[in-house]
Design a protein around this nucleic acid. Structure first.
Lengths: 226, 226
DNA sequence: TCAAAAGTGTTAAGTTTACACCCATGA
DNA sequence: TCATGGGTGTAAACTTAACACTTTTGA
């Protein structure tokens, strides 16, 4: 319960909405859930939930995410709060939007049915309701900005990846083709990308070198740019 | 009153906290208010207020700002929401932080007394309580980032300004010296900075050319970089 | 033997940085 | 006449962009 000092001030329901990104088949994807109440019953919305009294905003977002995806190793960051008066026809709700990045390889597709969810290509979004499209745009912009100076995009890939995979990932997020030689040059200049010596033969006959990202080394330098 | 659908969900007091920036004597400054309740009675805090039922978050921030500064022409943008459980010892309050930029020339110093406020140099901040230092850091970082690709910093200056003034402004915000020739070259390459033909003799015997920023022309091009 | 993806360097264009002197004027 | 801030251009360093062919190997 809130403290008496502020008892005369109004109170609001506070929710979190998480824009969850994944990457598959060369496409940036977003996980949506079908609403199961009116209005807009059956329509797609981001993963949301109400903030509870015993949790911070970040904890609420993390709870919603882990509940619905089963994944604990993910990138999660707040976008901003949305508080228009009639943003939710069900009542006044202030929503704090988050975005998250996870490796779809760890996502259990059984959860799709359990939570009535669906992965959708980010460049082919369905109609969204409330202010959810504003949240989406904000999430994509933030993601596009941030991958140029932080390694967060790698959270969308398995721990081990090839140069082609990471280039396709960047191309999908930025929605533009990148020059192969220039891209690889910049990646390989950074010492955090280390060759494992393993070869991935799943995509080509010749096979591609497998890399990992050394997060410890990155912590020391903290200098990333692509 | 909130709608019955969500009646079982918890509610929270929601506040806005505004980091208000001004510029004077070559210094970036922030407007703080002395708290008038325990705990931390008398200590400095950003301008805050509770969100009311009939207003959006942005409206609440704007209301607090105009009430306390008397200024309506200002730049205002949300930073993010802060929702740690015990962030406010007076009770659970979720606070949405904003930052604002205004021209101190339009600020009436009588309001300092009325609201028990104080302008403080941004590079010499007092001890701050709660999570207010986190908000400050976020505000300064955002401001530093954003002035390189938008003209928002000009909201800190009078409509008419000289090249020296804007350079000192950028130096104050970025907290580093800039090269005079390189800075002026980049500014003057942008067509939105237009010479009025007037001369400001208040700072030098020779006098400095007075410029204005043509916001209409900027809207058409939307290409700014310094 | 050929299709498919992996891998690899150089050059030109553009951007950023560093840097020092003359100008106009009021005191 | 001099002290003060206003105003101006160039060259070197660096970064980015454009571009095409060879390698490996499984089918």
């Amino acid at each position: 319960m809130t403290h008496k000092y502020y008892a005369d001030e109004p109170s609001f329901h506070v929710a979190v909405d998480c824009i969850i990104f994944g990457f598959e088949d060369g496409n940036l994807q977003v996980l949506f859930q079908h609403r199961n109440i009116e209005p807009f019953n059956g329509e797609l919305t981001p993963m949301g939930g109400f903030v509870q009294e015993d949790e911070t905003l970040d904890e609420a977002a993390y709870r919603v995410l882990t509940e619905r995806t089963g994944i604990k190793d993910l990138f999660l960051e707040q976008l901003e709060a949305f508080g228009d008066i009639n943003r939710d026809p069900g009542g006044r709700v202030i929503s704090v939007a988050y975005y998250a990045l996870l490796d779809k390889a760890h996502y259990d597709n059984k959860l799709l049915e359990k939570f009535n969810c669906k992965w959708v290509d980010a460049n082919n979004l369905p109609t969204l309701y409330f202010d959810h499209m504003k949240m989406m745009k904000k999430a994509i912009n933030r993601l596009q900005d941030k991958i140029s100076y932080t390694p967060i995009a790698l959270k969308l890939l398995p721990e081990e990846f090839t140069m082609s995979q990471i280039q396709k990932l960047y191309e999908a997020i930025l929605d533009e083709k990148l020059d192969k030689r220039n891209f690889r040059k910049k990646v390989c200049e950074m010492p955090y990308f280390v060759k494992t010596g393993k070869i991935d033969k799943s995509c080509s006959k010749r096979g591609a070198a497998i890399y990992v990202f050394d997060y410890n080394m990155y912590q020391e330098h903290r200098d990333f740019h692509l």
